[in-house]
Design a protein around this nucleic acid. Sequence first.
DNA 1: ACCCAGGGGCAAG
DNA 2: CTTGCCCATGGG
Length: 311
Amino acid sequence: MMKTGVMECPEFNLGMTLESGQTFHWMPVNDLGGEGWTGCIGSNAITLRQQGGLLHYRGGSTQLISRYFAFDHDLEVIRLSCAGHPASLKASLACKGLRVMRQPLWECLASFILSPMKQVAHIRQMSLALRTGFGKPLKGTPVPAFPEARSLAEAGEKELRKCGLGFRAKSLHATALLVASGEFQPEALRGMSTAAARTELCKLPGIGRKVANCILLFAYERLEAVPVDVWVARILGSFRSPGSRKMTLDQLESYGERLLGPYAGYIQQYLFHQARTGELVLPKKRVPWKKPALAKSITSHRGRKRGSVIS
DNA sequence: ACCCAGGGGCAAG
DNA sequence: CTTGCCCATGGG
């Protein structure tokens, strides 16, 4: 049986963090004595349950979990960095415990290639279909590991398309080939400036400025990166004086970086979360936000055949 | 600079 | 059940 333990987690809201659109594979589950989450970090099966300032876990290690959820980020410092901007401060205070994660590079990069023109619920389905079809099954969680680049490259575009990827299948397959061949090395970007790393990411098929910024923020620890989607555009637009001339997405990104400061990506995440949950009042209507389906049981998912489809 | 394909879940009718 | 809407990227 996998090791169970408990660790301290200062300033943390596990559910809010896992539902904030950074990852797409964690499933709610009743385990470890109550409502928790099951999933994986890389190929480590993990089940988690938070009780106040304590985090119960099965699988992984305190180091692995602390690093993944970035318990080293000082959220108070981040909140204070935007104390001069009332809406940002308000959002930051409403989202206490929401952390910007530090995800494995390939898993995050590939997952966000799935994201364009898709809502979170569907990205979750695509992620699960890819994991089930081409990822390594894990003992202790129904969620398989995210497939290696080589596995997706070998699978071929047609098979990826069967996972409901649509036109994203072509982008993901092409990118998987580049990574599997070593022509693109995700690790090589770690030492680059944010701007240089962004330029490299944008060379990959299926990755534009918005997706690149998501990857920079959620995997490369670039806390200043601001992914501008329609929501963030709407939010940033609402901060500008009425009647001022319309900005392009690139201009809004620069505006956001300047307005929100050195942790602009973090603050953006707080504003985004408030807008999505309807706590931040915006001119336009909001879309529904449904909780992911409960994981049925670990045993019922074990031993699913490669390539089978989730129903 | 502008225009539009593309696809599947979901809300509204 | 059917229609309309959502939306980042890439290519024209």
